[in-house]
Computed example of a mutant assay.
Amino acid sequence: MNAIMWMGVAGIVGTALSPWITERLRSKNARRDQLVKLRLAIYADLLRATARLATTATASATSHPNDAEMIGGDDFDSLLSQAQVVASDDVYRRLNELSQLTETFNQHLVKAESRPVFPHRQHLHDGAVNDPLRLQHRRALADIAGGVAVAHGRVQDAIRHEMNR
């Protein structure tokens, strides 16, 4: 076979394969665009949730032990599981740090809560809200709440860095 004949065969094969190659590239780009849109939606929800975590942690750390509330919950866990599927490694690592701080905060919150006291023993527990151990837990809560706010900022920075790539 001579060169002209090979060029003709290549032209026919190229013409036949061209639509398949074009469709494959378009499909790949469509999947990538869909993933970016999904990430963006999940990241927006995550940023709202992490900001709410930071605000609630700060408010709970500074409020009376009976008025404090736990942070996180099922909504945050659901967002974490969604992020595990689509988030980048850096964002997911930052979210895990925040999740661990959330768990630590809730553990210290339980330790800092005032316990119910039987009426006949009330005189032994007057001022129990301000006993040294509870105050130590309240200070730890304030430190952890500051860590939650910092972790929220790190999540925000990681998402911003990923979206600007």
Rank of each mutant, 00 (worst) to 15 (best):
N2I: 07
A3W: 05
I4N: 08
M7Y: 08
I12K: 04
I12S: 01
I12N: 02
V13H: 03
T15Y: 14
T15V: 07
T15F: 15
A16R: 06
I21M: 12
T22K: 06
R24T: 12
L25A: 14
R26M: 05
R26V: 10
R26N: 09
S27Q: 13
K28H: 13
R32Y: 10
D33N: 15
D33W: 04
Q34C: 05
Q34A: 15
Q34G: 13
V36E: 12
R39G: 04
R39S: 09
L40W: 00
L40A: 14
A41Q: 08
I42W: 02
I42D: 03
Y43P: 09
A44S: 13
A44Y: 00
D45A: 15
D45K: 15
L46D: 01
A49L: 13
L53K: 10
A54M: 02
T55D: 06
T55N: 11
T55L: 13
A57F: 07
A57V: 11
T58I: 12
A59M: 09
A61D: 07
A61L: 06
T62L: 08
H64F: 06
D67I: 00
A68G: 04
E69D: 05
M70S: 12
I71H: 03
G72V: 08
G72W: 10
D75A: 11
F76A: 04
F76M: 10
D77E: 13
S78C: 08
S78I: 12
S78Y: 11
L79W: 07
L80Q: 08
L80E: 00
A87W: 04
A87N: 01
S88F: 03
S88K: 08
Y92E: 00
R93G: 03
L95H: 02
L95M: 14
N96Q: 12
N96G: 01
L98N: 07
L98F: 04
S99K: 13
S99I: 01
Q100N: 14
L101R: 14
T102D: 03
E103R: 14
E103C: 02
E103G: 07
T104D: 12
F105M: 06
V110M: 07
V110D: 11
V110S: 05
K111E: 12
K111Y: 06
A112W: 12
P116Y: 02
P116S: 08
V117S: 01
F118L: 01
F118C: 00
P119H: 01
R121S: 01
R121F: 00
Q122C: 00
Q122W: 00
H123R: 05
H123A: 05
H123T: 02
G127M: 03
V129Q: 09
N130Y: 10
N130K: 09
D131N: 15
D131L: 04
L133A: 10
L133E: 14
L133Q: 11
R134A: 10
R134D: 05
L135Q: 14
Q136E: 15
H137M: 09
H137V: 00
R138F: 10
R139V: 11
A140F: 06
A140Q: 15
A140L: 14
L141Q: 09
L141N: 09
L141R: 12
L141V: 09
D143H: 11
D143M: 14
I144L: 12
I144S: 07
G146F: 01
G146P: 03
G147R: 13
V148R: 06
A149G: 10
A149M: 06
A149S: 13
A151W: 12
H152Y: 11
I159H: 06
I159A: 05
R160P: 01
M163G: 00
N164K: 11
N164Y: 02
N164F: 04
